[in-house]
């Protein structure tokens, strides 16, 4: 599904290059559930952002669904991720001014989905996540776990092939975290969605099918469970 070849990312400060990612090679197949682990500052988020095309590598080749991402223009790249990737953030990043319903609906608006179809899709996902009763609430009226649930629902609404989650449970208590992990697992098993998550928790990492350990911008180990 995606493939990174010799990907590097560095920042230059005062002439010296600081490598955040150093010649990383990574292939992820359709249907995998990958957990990325590593100490703080090891480049996990950077890697995830590059995969999600929010950030660009300084060097290297990158393929997504067989498209050479490093050759694409801005517009093509955003079209690609808009249709295929859903993002889930540690800080949820719901839009404060929008209700639960509207937050979930927003990606569809940007994909020019017709109103009737939008309604059906959103109703469907609200139902599936058991949050119909909360659809008119604003994010600040929800608990952290609920917010993250909405964040995931929003990421899933446009039926992406890949979910990228950067420490999705970082701000949640362990019970809420477990629920989210179960949800990912279910999505991965039942719907065949590919999931890549960054996590600090050994336990959460176990939900996946592969664990990648990052250290100083390099892949230290890759363990298939």
């Amino acid at each position: 599904m995606l493939s990174l070849k010799q990907i590097s990312k560095y920042y230059s400060s005062g002439g010296a290059k600081t490598y955040v990612l150093n010649r990383v090679d990574l292939d992820v197949d359709q249907g995998e559930f990958v957990s990325i682990m590593g100490p703080s500052g090891s480049g996990k988020s950077t890697l995830l952002n590059i995969i999600g095309m929010l950030d660009q590598p300084s060097e290297g080749y990158q393929y997504f669904l067989n498209e050479p991402v490093h050759q694409l223009k801005d517009k093509q790249r955003s079209a690609l991720y808009k249709q295929n990737i859903g993002f889930v953030f540690q800080a949820y990043h719901l839009i404060d001014e929008l209700t639960v319903y509207e937050n979930i609906e927003t990606p569809l608006l940007y994909q020019d989905v017709k109103s009737a179809e939008r309604k059906a899709l959103v109703a469907d996902i609200l139902d599936r996540f058991n949050i119909v009763g909360k659809k008119d609430l604003f994010p600040e009226q929800l608990s952290g776990g609920q917010q993250q649930l909405v964040g995931i629902a929003r990421a899933l609404i446009s039926k992406p092939k890949l979910i990228l989650a950067d420490e999705p449970t970082g701000n949640l208590n362990s019970k809420q975290g477990e629920e989210i992990m179960e949800l990912f697992k279910k999505l991965n098993k039942e719907d065949g969605v590919t999931v890549i998550q960054v996590t600090h928790s050994e336990k959460n990492a176990q939900y996946g099918s592969r664990i990648i350990n990052l250290l100083d911008g390099k892949i230290d180990s890759s363990i298939i469970l």
Binding site: G52, Y110, Q111
Partner: peptide
């Protein structure tokens, strides 16, 4: 700025 960032990840184009 955060809202802009989020909307971009949700697929908003610059024009929109």
């Amino acid at each position: 700025s955060r809202e802009v960032g989020v909307r971009k990840t949700l697929g908003a184009s610059k024009g929109q």
